[in-house]
Computed example of a mutant assay.
Amino acid sequence: MHAPTTELLKEIYEGLKVFDVPVYTRLPSETVLEPFFVIGEHQDEDMSAKINLAVTRTELKIDLFYPYRDRAEIEDLTHNVKSVLSQKRKAVTSNIIYDDSIGREVFHVVFYVNTII
């Protein structure tokens, strides 16, 4: 039996596979070209003491690095990723930014997946 967060990570990973974009758990080397996802850190808040149930609120960060091309293209992809990630009672926020911190110009989309497990 896996922890609920492990199950959430597996579900997220499977959902992202529909985009045919590599998924990593840490930022790959600068030789790896975009697009790619990075499933990052998560934060949990144990709510059990307040409501007498085993409930945890979790926030998971997912980054998408995408070639700096057409803005409409990244807007469409962001919308589609949010649709996949928000299934099963998950709230998803996103932020699209220009980023050149990896040595080239890319769109960097930061997704925050919030759910109660």
Rank of each mutant, 00 (worst) to 15 (best):
M1A: 14
M1N: 14
H2I: 11
P4K: 14
P4Y: 14
T5K: 08
T5Q: 06
E7M: 13
E7Q: 07
L8S: 06
L9V: 11
K10W: 05
K10P: 00
K10M: 11
K10N: 05
E11D: 08
I12D: 02
I12C: 06
E14P: 00
K17T: 03
K17W: 01
K17L: 08
F19A: 06
F19V: 05
F19G: 11
D20E: 11
P22V: 05
P22E: 03
V23I: 14
V23S: 07
Y24S: 04
R26S: 15
L27F: 12
L27D: 01
L27W: 13
P28A: 02
S29I: 04
S29V: 10
T31Y: 10
V32T: 08
L33E: 06
L33A: 06
L33C: 01
E34S: 12
E34P: 04
E34F: 08
P35K: 15
P35N: 08
F36V: 07
F37A: 07
I39Y: 03
H42F: 15
D44V: 09
E45K: 12
D46C: 06
D46G: 08
A49R: 15
I51F: 05
I51C: 01
L53C: 06
V55L: 10
T56W: 07
R57S: 11
E59S: 13
E59L: 14
L60I: 10
K61I: 09
K61R: 13
L64R: 12
L64P: 02
L64T: 03
Y66K: 07
Y66N: 06
P67A: 10
P67K: 06
Y68M: 08
R69D: 11
R69P: 00
R71D: 03
R71Y: 06
R71S: 12
A72D: 12
A72Q: 10
E73T: 09
E73R: 12
E73H: 08
D76N: 10
L77N: 08
T78A: 11
H79G: 00
H79Q: 13
H79L: 05
N80I: 00
V81G: 04
K82Q: 05
L85I: 08
L85T: 05
S86H: 04
Q87N: 14
K88T: 10
R89C: 00
R89W: 05
K90N: 04
K90E: 03
V92W: 02
N95V: 01
N95K: 07
N95G: 01
I97M: 06
I97L: 12
D99C: 04
D100R: 14
S101W: 14
S101H: 13
R104K: 15
R104G: 00
E105I: 03
E105Y: 14
V106F: 08
F107M: 11
V109F: 06
F111K: 01
F111E: 01
N114C: 13
N114G: 11
I116E: 13
I116A: 11
I117A: 05
